[in-house]
Each structure stands twice: as structure tokens, then as C-alpha cells.
């Protein structure tokens, strides 16, 4: 039964990958990419990695697909850095990819069985943190430094993306998308989806303490809803050099560092969560992080500003 399930999930993945590579139309490949991301998320669910599945659906399929779709819409004249690959190069690349896949498969089979695991060790300290989901504990407690610095990576990406914009548009808003009047169907869909989506995002955020979910997935959802509102003309894009944008981006890392410093005094170690107030502190930091993540993701997908604004 499990083999059958694995096969039903693996076949669409393979077919989807082949379709994306083989199709001549960029648009078709992009929609193939969305579908591929969803099947990949299902595969993660089948592997009992629901946290990964949610992230894959949100970032891997959703946000990345949206980014590619926007890029495709804006590149009216496709640019090429070199000659398109000839059939010989394509065959060589295919063979190389097949070889790498086989080698990786062989290595995976050579891994010890049962796999060594830290799972038991991650569960033990959970009650003191007031958290039931070990994945959340890894992200916010055991490897909190990684999480803090991954948010900094997002900030660096935003700074880097802004640096790619034009000098004239510096500090302005991203170009509207799509250009012109949004279709009524899109506006209707946005009005319908946004309230429901926000409720679900709050649920995802809250449930992350005890079940798969959490600030990152919730933030991605909010960012997606904001982008939908921008596309439907219901909300403006954030002003890239604006006062509130800067504050929103900085609040996540700053709150994390302040909480870490409180940990030195209250729990004897930087980034330690003092036991009686661990849960409220964690939630406060996660909220601040969520604000930074939402604004960073919206700015990243919306792209660098290209024109001056009246502000």
C-alpha cells in the first residue's frame, strides 16, 4: 500500500519535471512548475514531514512560481546571455543529470538503517518551552541563531534587490502589476479570499506551537494575500525606502536580539528562554519576525522600484 502511494506520487513528479523541461512555452512551463510544487508538497505529507510540505507549497511552489510568472510578464523581449544550447549539449547535460541522480540514489541506499536521529533528544525539553511541536523548538530554541540569521538573509536579499533598481526610483514604490485596470473577476476573488486567508494565517501562526505550521508559513500566506490585494488594486505596494518599511524590516531581528539579551539576565544564556515566560516571549518574537518576513517577501516578489513617487 505504501509502495502504491509512493508510486502514485512519484509518477506525477517525474512527469511534471519532464514537462517543465520539455515544453517550448515558458508560460506552460511556469504552470507546470506550480503543479509540480503541489505534488512535491503532497510527497512531503506522505513522508510525514508536514512542516516541510507547508513550506514547499508556500515558498517553493507558490512564491517562487509567482516570482517567475511576474518576471515572464515583464520580460517583453526575452534576453539571452548566449547561444541556445544545441542538441549535443542537451544530451550531455541530460546524461550528467541522470548520472548525478543515480549516484545520489546509491548514496541514499548506503545510509544506515534505521537512520540515526536526534528526534528523541528534541522532544525532552519541550515542556519547559511551552511548545508541543519539536520542529518549532528546533527553529526557535535549539537552533535559534540559525533562524535569527536566516531572517537577516532575507533582509540582505531585500537590500540587494533594492540595489538592483534604478537611481531614479530609489526609495519609491514597485511598479504596479498588472498594468492597467485589474479585471473584475480578480477583484472579486481578492475580496473573497483575503478575509478567509487572514483567518487561516492566524490559525497557522498559533497552531505552530503544537502542530505543523508556524510564523514562516503564516507570514508567507499573509504576503501572498497582500500581493493579491496589490494585483487587484485594493492595497498599495510597500514604499521600498519608506519609514514604516524600514521599521517593519528591522523589528524582527531587533526583537530577537533583545529577547536573546533578556535571556542572558533571566536564564543565564544568550537566546535562552526563561522558563515561566518562555511561551509569551516566544510568541512576541515570532510576531515581530512575522512582520519582517511579510514585508520582506512582498518587497522581494514585487521587485525593485523603477519610478519616482509623489511621496
Amino acid at each position: 500500500m505504501t509502495e502504491l502511494l509512493a508510486l502514485t506520487l512519484a509518477l506525477p513528479l517525474l512527469a511534471g519535471a519532464l514537462f517543465i523541461v520539455a515544453t517550448a512555452s515558458t508560460r506552460a512551463a511556469l504552470f507546470g512548475f506550480f503543479a509540480f510544487g503541489l505534488f512535491l508538497a503532497l510527497a512531503w505529507v506522505a513522508l510525514d514531514a508536514v512542516d516541510v510540505a507547508l513550506t514547499e507549497a508556500a515558498i517553493g511552489g507558490g512564491a517562487t512560481g509567482l516570482l517567475l510568472l511576474r518576471l515572464n510578464g515583464r520580460m517583453r523581449h526575452p534576453v539571452s546571455l548566449g547561444e541556445p544550447a544545441g542538441p549535443r549539449l542537451k544530451i550531455a547535460a541530460g546524461l550528467l543529470a541522470a548520472l548525478v541522480t543515480l549516484a545520489l540514489g546509491a548514496l541514499l541506499l548506503a545510509l544506515p538503517e534505521p537512520a540515526p536521529s536526534l528526534a528523541a533528544a528534541t522532544v525532552e525539553p519541550l515542556p519547559a518551552l511551552g511548545i508541543g511541536n519539536p520542529v518549532t523548538a528546533v527553529l526557535i530554541a535549539y537552533r535559534a541563531l540559525d533562524t535569527l540569521l536566516e531572517i537577516v538573509v532575507l533582509l540582505i536579499a531585500v537590500v540587494g534587490l533594492r540595489a538592483l533598481g534604478t537611481d531614479r526610483g530609489w526609495g519609491g514604490r514597485p511598479v504596479p502589476w498588472p498594468e492597467g485596470e485589474p479585471s473584475p473577476a480578480l477583484v472579486f476573488l481578492a475580496r473573497l479570499l483575503i478575509p478567509a486567508g487572514l483567518v487561516f494565517a492566524v490559525y497557522l501562526f498559533w497552531v505552530g506551537a503544537d502542530a505543523p505550521g508556524g510564523k514562516f508559513q503564516a507570514s508567507t500566506l499573509v504576503a501572498a494575500l497582500w500581493l493579491l490585494a496589490i494585483m487587484a488594486g485594493l492595497a498599495p505596494a510597500p514604499c521600498s525606502g519608506g519609514r514604516w518599511t524600514g521599521r517593519a524590516l528591522a523589528i524582527g531581528p531587533l526583537a530577537f536580539i533583545v529577547a536573546g539579551t533578556i535571556g542572558i539576565a533571566a536564564a543565564g544564556s544568550f537566546l535562552a528562554w526563561p522558563e515561566p515566560v518562555a511561551k509569551p516571549m516566544i510568541i512576541a518574537v515570532e510576531l515581530a519576525l512575522a512582520v519582517s518576513i511579510v514585508v520582506a517577501l512582498v518587497l522581494l516578489v514585487a521587485g525593485p522600484p523603477e519610478r519616482e513617487t509623489g511621496r
Partner: peptide, 24 residues
């Protein structure tokens, strides 16, 4: 020693300060 931690985080604080003070 906390010094390695602050050596990593001090530039991050600077990055945040730049974002906060960009306009003035």
C-alpha cells in the same frame, strides 16, 4: 565568552540601524 556572539550580531544591529535611519 559572549564576544563571538556580539562580533556576529553587531554588524546586524548596524544593518537594522541603517534601515531605520535611511530617511534622515
Amino acid at each position: 565568552s559572549l564576544l563571538p556572539v556580539w562580533a556576529v550580531l553587531t554588524p546586524v544591529l548596524g544593518l537594522c540601524a541603517l534601515l531605520l535611519c535611511e530617511r534622515w
